[in-house]
Design a protein around this nucleic acid. Sequence first.
DNA 1: CGGGGGCTTGAGGCCACTCAACGATAGTGG
DNA 2: CCACTATCGTTGAGTGGCCTCAAGCCCCCG
Lengths: 227, 227
Amino acid sequence: MFVRINTNRTAHLYTLDDLGVTRGSSAIINLNEFTYQQGAEIYGEKEPARYVYQVKKGAVRSYKLLSDGRRQIAAFHLVGDIFGLANSETHPFTAEAVVETTLRLIERQSLETVAVSDAAVTCSLLNMTTDNLQHAENHMLLLGRKTALEKVAAFLMEMDGRLTAAGVMTLPMNRRDIADYLGLTLETVSRVLSKMRDGGVLDFKSKNQREIVILNRKRLATFDLQY
Amino acid sequence: MFVRINTNRTAHLYTLDDLGVTRGSSAIINLNEFTYQQGAEIYGEKEPARYVYQVKKGAVRSYKLLSDGRRQIAAFHLVGDIFGLANSETHPFTAEAVVETTLRLIERQSLETVAVSDAAVTCSLLNMTTDNLQHAENHMLLLGRKTALEKVAAFLMEMDGRLTAAGVMTLPMNRRDIADYLGLTLETVSRVLSKMRDGGVLDFKSKNQREIVILNRKRLATFDLQY
DNA sequence: CGGGGGCTTGAGGCCACTCAACGATAGTGG
DNA sequence: CCACTATCGTTGAGTGGCCTCAAGCCCCCG
């Protein structure tokens, strides 16, 4: 029951197969793919939750807004991640495509149909929600108690393992997205990255500032206190 | 399947009966009560998770620490709340008694035994975890993007509904706990509360600064932007 | 070549933090 | 009963880290 499917902190290694929905029950499951343009809204806050999504290509940001425009991004969903399973009737977030993004859609209703007859599916949902919760808990520590330097270092290390290919990490999000994820301003993010570059910790590949090469992971790690 | 037991955001209205564990299955369920002194540790971070807990009396804080002592309290668990169901082998938090606290303990193993044969139990666990997640998401917005005044106002409104009896809200936690929950210093919390008192929004009952009377809920609400 | 978006960098300001002093209360022991 | 101590909360003065505002660069794309 409580044995975990895997031990990763985030949900990105789950597949739809983990949900059991593609396992010989294709007759009742409705799977669709859909591509969203950069900046397109996938669902809005307080909209009814009709689908659950898995990222096939691209990246998604989930965020909340204050009425004066302040934004807090709670999570980035990268390739392989499943999101949108609020388990409530309405989404508590807005979700947008950070770049051009292809998603697999699963109807909630179809999922429920399977879940009723398959306890393993419910258990998988529980595991995924728990992963989301743990990410949120770590992020609270970051937002409430870490300095700008520590926040950016933690962000880079989080993304490093997931985005780095051939030594280069290609960030799909811009500085404002990073800032709104870390509870900073985009200027502060930029300043910290510049300082890290000047300090020899990282470098920008070619002239694209979203392509980052980590030169010294060990020193980068020292910037973010472990607990 | 996805129909919620209730619509409250936090989990404090769940009882153990919602978990199904007291419903004619007492033979395999092991229920114990235990009282913790003020400041006593209930479980430590990375300890194996043997129990799930329900607060009978008192209050509990769940927090994470950085190595230099900075602390982020993720949640306060008040009377009725269930906590400790990390659904992983080890707790991601430390939990401590804020005041003298009585808890009901449920062995995880017992819970698993019931859950295997009862899908409703798993579903309840999922609902509770989802509630925790939503609280965490709202708290991220608070920590990342709200001012000190907005944070304290949000805190008071969160506690108001749960602690106020006969017009008086009796906070179990001290200023440092509040500060570590809101990502502030205790001095800032104190200053904001003083300003609210001077502004006629609240008052301290007798001479105990933890007993607070909200004089003007409407104005208090205006201090915290809604989204 | 002009315009716009994204990023960087600088100058100055402000909000929350740091450091410190002080008062109030409760518990302890002589 | 009165020190004595420890804990908690408040308040003040000054600092500093991050924000605000602004200018300018680079690249892309018409």
